[in-house]
Amino acid sequence: MEHTIQMVQPDEVEIWLGFAKQIWSSDREKLRTGFLSNPFPYEFLYWRGGKALAWLSLSIRKEYVEGCSSLPIAYLEGISVLPEARRQGIARELLAFARQWAKDHDCLQLASDCSLENELSQAFHHRSGFREVGRTVHYILNVD
Rank of each mutant, 00 (worst) to 15 (best):
L116C: 10
C68L: 07
Q88A: 14
I90P: 05
I79E: 01
D106P: 00
L120G: 15
R87N: 13
A91N: 03
D104A: 13
I140P: 01
S70H: 09
G129H: 03
A123V: 07
G134E: 06
Y75K: 03
Q88C: 11
R135V: 09
E84I: 09
L82I: 05
E77C: 11
H125R: 00
I73R: 03
E84P: 06
L71H: 14
F130L: 00
R92H: 13
V81W: 02
R99F: 03
A74I: 10
L108K: 14
F124E: 04
R127K: 14
E132Y: 03
D106E: 11
A85W: 08
L94C: 06
A111P: 11
A111K: 01
E132M: 15
G78M: 09
S112R: 00
S69N: 14
H138G: 08
L71Y: 08
Q100F: 07
R86K: 09
V143Y: 06
A91V: 02
S121F: 00
Q88M: 13
A123P: 04
A85L: 04
A74Y: 04
R99W: 03
L141Q: 13
L82R: 13
E84D: 15
C68Y: 08
A111S: 15
E77L: 08
H126T: 13
C114V: 05
F130K: 00
G67I: 10
R87Q: 11
E132A: 10
V133Q: 04
C68E: 13
D104H: 04
C107F: 07
C68N: 10
C68Q: 06
V133E: 14
V81K: 01
Q109I: 08
F124C: 07
Y75P: 02
S112N: 04
R87V: 09
I90K: 08
D113P: 01
C107R: 02
C114Q: 02
E84S: 13
G129F: 03
G89P: 04
E77H: 09
G89S: 10
L108F: 06
A85Q: 09
Y75C: 06
Y75E: 05
L94G: 01
S121A: 15
D106M: 06
V143L: 14
Q122K: 12
V137Q: 10
R87C: 12
Q109F: 07
A123R: 14
A102L: 05
A85I: 07
R127V: 10
R131I: 14
K103A: 10
G78R: 01
S115P: 01
P83Y: 01
F124S: 03
N142S: 14
Y139D: 08
V133C: 13
I140G: 10
T136A: 14
W101V: 05
A85M: 06
L95D: 02
C68K: 11
V133I: 12
H126E: 11
Q100G: 14
Y75D: 04
R127C: 11
V133A: 02
Y139G: 09
A74Q: 08
E93L: 15
I79S: 02
R99H: 08
S70I: 12
R131K: 11
S70A: 15
E93N: 12
D144W: 08
A111R: 02
A85V: 07
H125K: 01
N118Q: 06
I140Q: 13
G134Q: 01
S128N: 05
P83M: 01
A98Q: 01
Q109G: 04
E119D: 15
L120F: 07
D144E: 15
A96P: 04
S80H: 12
V143I: 14
K103P: 02
H105D: 07
K103G: 06
